[in-house]
Write a protein that binds this DNA or RNA. Structure first.
Length: 455
RNA sequence: UCCUCAGUAGCUCAGUUGGUUAGAGCAUCUGACUGUUAAUCAGAGGGUCACUGGUUCAAGUCCAGUCUGAGGAGCCA
C-alpha cells in the first residue's frame, strides 16, 4: 500500500509509503487492468497492490512487485493535485505544507527530525535524567526571554476594567494575567533541586516580530538542568549531547542524509564560489563528530576579532570592543572563518546576560556559555546558575526583576541550594544543522511565523 | 520593526523604448507507442499580469499606497 509518485507507460507505478525515499516499482502487466482503472492511477492516488516480488528486468531497481491485483483506495484528481514529478521551489511547497510530506526532500527532513527527537529522549534517559513537563501557560513574566503571547478568556472588545482604566485580570480565567511560556528553565530548576538531573522538551512561544531563516513564533526547545554541575560540566554535557544525536541520525538515517547532502550540493551549485560550503553535509557532520568544540572566553573572542584582518580592514558593520554583545557577523567570523568548527564562548559581561547567571569572581562576567554552529549561529545558550541567595537578590534588584512574584523561585536558594547549571537548545536549529535546510520554516511541519498561521 | 529584491498559466520563468489578440518549458487533457526510470512523440485546453488608486490617446510595463513572499539586520533558541 502507498501513494503513487509517477505512473509510466500505463505499466510502471512508482509507489511510496513514506518509510524511505526509495519507491517500490509496481509492474501492472498489460491487460490486468481495464481502461477505467488505469485512468485512476494518477500522481498522488493511494493504492493497494497484491503481487509477487521479483527480480527487476529494468535497471533502476533490484526488485519490483509484479502485480496480480491493484485496487485504488483513494483517487487523486490529476488536474488539481499540485505536486508533480519535478522539482518544486521550497517557497511553493511551504504554501502547501499539508502535502509537502509526500516529497522526497520533506520525507527525508521529517524522518531525520523524528530520529533526532527520539535520540534526545534516549540520550537523557540513558543518563538517568527525568523528563519534566513544564507548563505551557505561565503567569511568570520575569524571565525576559522575549515578547509573550497573552492567554485570556476575557472579551477583547469590552474587557472588565479597574477604576484607573487598566484591564482587570482578576476576572480572567486564571484570576491573573497569563501567557504562553517562553522557557521552562525556571520550573526546570525547581525540579532539578529534587531529581538532580532533569530535562524538558516541549513547545516554546515567542511573540517577537522576527522575520529570519532561523526564528519561529512556536518552536521546540530542549532544556536540561543539572544539580551539582558547574559551567565546565555543563559544556561537556552539551557537547556530548549534540554529538550523540548527530551520531544517532548518521547511524539510523544514512539514506535520507545522503539524499539531503545531494540536494544541498545541487542547491549550492547555483551560488557563487565564495558562498559555497567547503564541506558536503555528510563531511560536515563527520567533522563535527570527530573534533572537539573550540572553547574560548568572551574576552578572548573580542581579542581575536580586534586582531582580525576583517576588523583592521573595517569589514565589520558593528564596532568591536569589550562589553558589546557579539553580533551575527562576529559570531560568523569566529565560527566560519577563524576556527571553522563549533565554538563555545564563555564568560560574557554580566550586563548583557540574564539575572540568573552566576557571577564570576571578577565581578564583571558571568558563567554563561553559548555554542555557535557554522551556518546557524547560536544553537545553545546556557549558564551555571547563581545559587547564592544574596548575590541573586542583588542581581535581580539591579535588573528590576519583580522579586515579590519570584518567591517560589527564590525558595530553591533558601532550602538546600546547590551549584547547578543548564542550557537550552533550539530543536529546529539542530534539525537545520543536521539536514542542511537553510530556512527554519522547512524543518517544522507547520511553521508559525509573523503573518502566517496556516493549517 | 528596519534595509534590499520580488509577485505574469497549476509550477518554473521570458515579456524590448508604454503600442495589435500576453509567450515558452514542465504539468494537465486527447491520441500514438509499450521494459519505462522526471519515459518519448503529435495535438488541444489553460491568464482578474497580487490588490487599490493615479499618469497617459494607450499600462503586464511608469508613479503612489496596501498585501504577500524571499534574503539580510535587530531580538534570540
Amino acid at each position: 500500500m502507498g501513494w503513487v509518485r509517477t505512473f509510466r507507460n500505463n505499466q510502471f507505478i512508482a509507489l511510496n509509503d513514506g518509510s524511505t525515499n526509495n519507491n517500490l516499482q509496481v509492474v501492472a502487466p498489460l491487460g490486468l487492468l481495464d481502461d477505467e482503472t488505469l485512468k485512476r492511477i494518477t500522481t498522488g492516488a493511494s493504492l493497494k497492490v497484491n503481487g509477487e516480488l521479483v527480480k527487476s528486468l529494468g535497471k533502476g531497481q533490484s526488485v519490483e512487485l509484479k502485480a496480480t491485483s491493484i485496487e485504488v483506495l483513494g483517487d487523486s484528481d490529476a488536474e488539481k493535485f499540485p505536486l508533480q514529478p519535478k522539482k518544486h521551489s521550497l517557497e511553493f511547497l511551504r504554501e502547501i505544507a499539508h502535502l509537502r510530506f509526500r516529497t522526497n526532500t520533506f520525507g527525508a527532513v521529517f524522518r531525520v527530525r523524528h530520529s533526532l527527537a527520539y535520540a534526545v529522549h534516549k540520550f537523557f534517559n540513558d543518563k538517568g535524567f527525568v523528563y519534566l513537563h513544564t507548563p505551557i501557560i505561565t503567569s511568570s513574566d520575569a524571565e525576559g526571554a522575549g515578547e509573550m503571547f497573552r492567554v485570556t478568556t476575557l472579551p477583547f472588545d469590552n474587557p472588565p476594567r479597574n477604576e484607573d482604566g487598566s484591564i482587570n485580570f482578576k476576572e480572567d480565567f486564571f484570576g491573573k494575567s497569563t501567557n504562553l511560556t517562553v522557557s521552562g528553565q525556571l520550573e526546570g530548576e525547581l525540579a532539578a533541586m529534587a531529581f538532580s538531573d532533569i530535562y524538558t522538551f516541549g513547545p516554546t512561544f515567542r511573540a517577537e516580530n522576527s522575520n529570519t531563516t532561523r526564528h519561529l513564533a512556536e518552536f521546540w526547545m530542549i532544556e536540561p538542568e543539572m544539580a551539582f554541575y558547574d559551567i565546565e560540566d555543563n559544556m561537556n554535557l552539551a557537547e556530548e549531547f549534540i554529538k550523540y544525536i548527530i551520531q544517532y541520525a548518521m547511524d539510523n538515517n544514512r539514506d535520507d542524509l545522503e539524499f539531503l547532502a545531494q540536494r544541498l550540493a545541487d542547491e549550492e551549485k547555483q551560488l557563487p564560489q565564495d558562498k559555497r560550503s567547503e564541506l558536503g553535509l555528510i563531511e560536515k557532520l563527520e567533522f563535527v563528530l570527530k573534533n572537539a568544540f573550540e572553547r574560548i572566553t568572551y574576552t578572548e573572542a573580542i581579542d581575536i576579532l580586534v586582531n582580525s584582518a576583517a576588523y583592521k580592514k573595517k569589514k565589520f558593520q558593528y564596532d568591536v570592543k569589550w562589553g558589546i554583545d557579539l553580533q551575527s557577523e562576529h559570531e560568523r567570523y569566529l565560527v566560519e572563518k577563524h576556527f571553522k568548527k563549533p565554538v563555545i564562548v564563555t564568560g560574557y559581561p554580566a550586563a548583557i546576560k540574564a539575572f540568573y547567571m552566576r557571577m564570576n569572581d571578577d565581578g564583571k562576567t558571568v558563567a554563561a556559555m553559548d555554542i555557535l554552529a557554522p551556518g546557524i549561529g547560536e544553537i545553545v545558550g546556557g549558564s551555571q546558575r547563581e545559587e547564592r541567595y544574596d548575590k541573586l537578590i542583588e542581581r535581580m534588584e539591579d535588573m528590576n526583576i519583580p522579586i515579590n512574584e519570584m518567591q517560589w523561585y527564590l525558595d530553591t536558594r533558601r532550602f538546600g541550594s546547590v551549584p547547578h547549571a543548564g542550557f537550552g537548545l533550539g530543536f529546529e536549529r539542530m534539525v537545520q544543522f543536521v539536514t542542511g535546510m537553510t530556512n527554519i520554516r522547512d524543518v517544522i511541519p507547520f511553521a508559525r511565523t509573523p503573518k502566517n498561521c496556516e493549517f
